[in-house]
C-alpha cells in the first residue's frame, strides 16, 4: 500500500484508492462496530460503574494489590515464555516446512493444521493425561528405570509452558511459513557471492526479510496466550492465577462485575499495546 501511494503522481489517485479500500472494508468495519466496539464500550462503562456512580475503585484494587499485580505478572509471564519458546521452535520449523517437497510437505502441513480443528479443551486434557502422575510419560520413564517413582509434572509451570507452546505453535509457524515460502533463495546465494559468511547472510538478508512473519506470529501468540483461560486452568490450576481466571472468578463466584470488567480492560490494553507495537514495526519494515 505504502508503495503504491508513494509512487502515485497525484493526490487524486490516492484518494480514489482510499475510498475503494474503505468500500471493501465497510462490511467488516460494520461487523466489528456491532460485535466488538459496542461491547467494549459497555465493558469500559461497567468497569467504571461503582455502587454510587463513577468510581476507579476496581482499577485501584487491580493495580494496588500485591496479589493482583502477581496475577498480571503471571499472565504476562505465561505469554512471554510461550511466545519465546514458540518462536524458537517455529522459526526453523517454518524453513523446514518451506523446503520440504511433495508428500513430506503435505504430511507436515496436515500435522500443523489438524490440531487447529481440535478444541483447546481437548488438547489441554490430552496434556493432563500425558503428564499426570499415572500418565504415559511417567509410566514410560519408570518402565525404563530412568526414575524410581513418578515425578510431578502436571500442575507445574513447565507443564503449563509446554502445553501452551504446543497449543499456540501453529499460530507462530503459519505466518512465518507464509513469508519464508515467498523468500527467494537466490538472495542468500547473492549474499554469499558478495562475501558474506552464512551467519552474516542470515542476519543481513534472511532475518530482515522474514521479520514481518515473526512480528505477525509474535503478536498472534502473545495476545492468544496472555488471555488464555482453559490452558492454565487445566494444566496448572489455582496455583497460577491469571487475568483470565480472575475475570471468570469475578463474574462467576464473586459476582463483582465492576472488577471483572476492569480486569478485562487491563487484558485488552495489554493485547492492544502488543498488536499496535507489532503493526508499527511491520509497517516500518515494509516501507523501508
Amino acid at each position: 500500500m505504502t508503495h503504491a501511494a508513494a509512487q502515485a503522481p497525484a493526490g487524486k489517485i490516492v484518494d480514489r484508492d482510499r475510498s475503494a479500500a474503505l468500500a471493501f472494508l465497510a462490511p467488516s468495519l460494520l461487523f466489528l462496530l456491532v460485535a466488538f466496539v459496542t461491547p467494549l464500550i459497555l465493558l469500559l462503562g461497567v468497569s467504571l460503574a461503582g455502587p454510587s456512580g463513577l468510581s476507579l475503585d476496581a482499577y485501584g484494587k487491580l493495580l494496588g494489590t500485591g496479589y493482583y499485580l502477581t496475577v498480571i505478572w503471571n499472565s504476562l509471564r505465561l505469554a512471554l515464555l510461550t511466545t519465546i519458546f514458540a518462536l524458537a521452535i517455529a522459526y526453523p520449523a517454518a524453513f523446514a516446512l518451506a523446503r520440504a517437497r511433495g508428500m513430506v510437505r503435505t504430511a507436515l502441513l496436515t500435522c500443523l493444521f489438524l490440531p487447529l480443528a481440535a478444541s483447546v479443551i481437548v488438547k489441554a486434557f490430552a496434556w493432563t493425561i500425558l503428564l499426570r502422575s499415572d500418565g504415559i510419560v511417567n509410566r514410560i520413564l519408570v518402565g525404563l528405570g530412568l526414575i524410581e517413582a513418578p515425578i510431578r509434572m502436571i500442575f507445574t509451570e513447565t507443564a503449563l509452558i509446554v502445553g501452551s507452546v504446543n497449543i499456540f505453535l501453529p499460530f507462530m509457524i503459519l505466518p512465518i511459513y507464509a513469508v519464508v515460502t515467498q523468500l527467494d533463495r537466490r538472495l542468500s546465494e547473492a549474499a554469499a557471492t558478495l562475501g558474506a559468511p552464512p551467519i552474516a547472510a542470515f542476519l543481513k538478508v534472511t532475518l530482515p526479510l522474514t521479520l514481518p512473519g515473526i512480528i505477525a506470529g509474535v503478536a498472534l501468540v502473545f495476545s492468544l496466550s496472555v488471555s488464555a483461560y482453559v490452558v492454565p486452568t487445566l494444566l496448572i490450576g489455582e496455583r497460577y492465577p491469571t487475568l483470565a481466571s480472575t475475570i471468570a472468578k469475578a463474574y462467576l463466584l464473586a459476582r463483582d462485575p465492576q472488577f471483572g470488567a476492569a480486569a478485562g480492560v487491563a487484558l485488552l490494553v495489554i493485547a492492544l499495546i502488543v498488536v499496535t507495537l507489532s503493526a508499527r514495526l511491520a509497517g516500518r519494515e515494509n516501507s523501508r
Binding site: D184, R186, L187, E189, A190, A191, A192, T193, L194, G195, A196, P197, P198, A201, V205, P208, L209, E285, R288
Partner: peptide
C-alpha cells in the same frame, strides 16, 4: 572454497537484488 571466500561476482538471471 565456500562462495563467500572466492571473490567471484555473480549477476543472477533474476538479479536477486535485496528488496529490503
Amino acid at each position: 572454497v565456500p562462495p563467500h571466500r572466492r571473490n567471484v561476482g555473480v549477476v543472477f538471471q533474476s538479479y536477486a537484488l535485496f528488496p529490503h
